[in-house]
C-alpha cells in the first residue's frame, strides 16, 4: 500500500524547527513518508518540492506571524500548477481571529498549540484526497 507522503516545511524567517521536527517524527511513526525541507523556505520552493515529491499533504509551521501572507500564497501557487488537490495544513503561533480567513483561503486546518499529534494524524488520514 502506498504510504501517505507529507511535506513538512518551515516558511518564513524564524529559526526554530524543533516543533516541525517533532511533528515529522510523529508522522513517521504513524507510517507516513515525511519529506523534511528545512528552514526558511519560500512559498515557491515549498510548492516546487511538493510537486516533485508528489505529496498528499503539505504541513507548514510558522512562528513569525507572516502566515496571513505565506499560507495563502502557497495555495495560490499550487493552483497555478494544477496541484490544488494537495491537502494543506498549518500550525504554529496563529491567533484565533486569523483562522477563518486562512480556511477561506484554502488551508484545510490550522493546528493550534493544544492540538495533539494523534489529532493531526487523524485529520490527515481522513482528509487526504486520493
Amino acid at each position: 500500500m502506498k504510504p501517505i507522503r507529507v511535506l513538512i516545511a518551515k516558511p518564513g524567517l524564524d529559526g526554530h524547527d524543533r516543533g516541525a521536527k517533532l511533528i515529522a517524527r510523529a508522522l513517521r511513526d504513524a507510517g507516513m513518508e515525511v519529506i523534511y525541507t528545512g528552514l526558511r523556505q519560500t512559498p515557491e520552493q515549498i510548492v516546487a518540492a511538493a510537486v516533485q515529491e508528489d505529496v498528499d499533504v503539505i504541513g507548514m509551521s510558522l512562528l513569525s506571524g507572516a502566515h496571513n501572507y505565506l499560507f495563502p500564497r502557497v495555495v495560490e501557487l499550487l493552483k497555478e500548477q494544477d496541484a490544488d488537490d494537495i491537502l494543506i495544513v498549518g500550525g504554529g503561533v496563529i491567533p484565533d481571529d486569523d483562522i477563518p480567513a486562512l480556511k477561506e483561503a484554502g488551508i484545510a486546518e490550522i493546528f493550534t498549540p493544544g492540538t495533539t499529534t494523534t489529532q493531526m494524524i487523524e485529520f490527515i488520514k481522513t482528509n487526504i484526497k486520493r
Partner: peptide
Amino acid sequence: PTSPYSGGSILGDRIRMQDLAL
C-alpha cells in the same frame, strides 16, 4: 532508510539542496 517499526520515514536530504528546488 524506512523505519522497520512503522514503515514510515523521514526523508531529509532536500534540506541540503534547497537552492535546487526552483
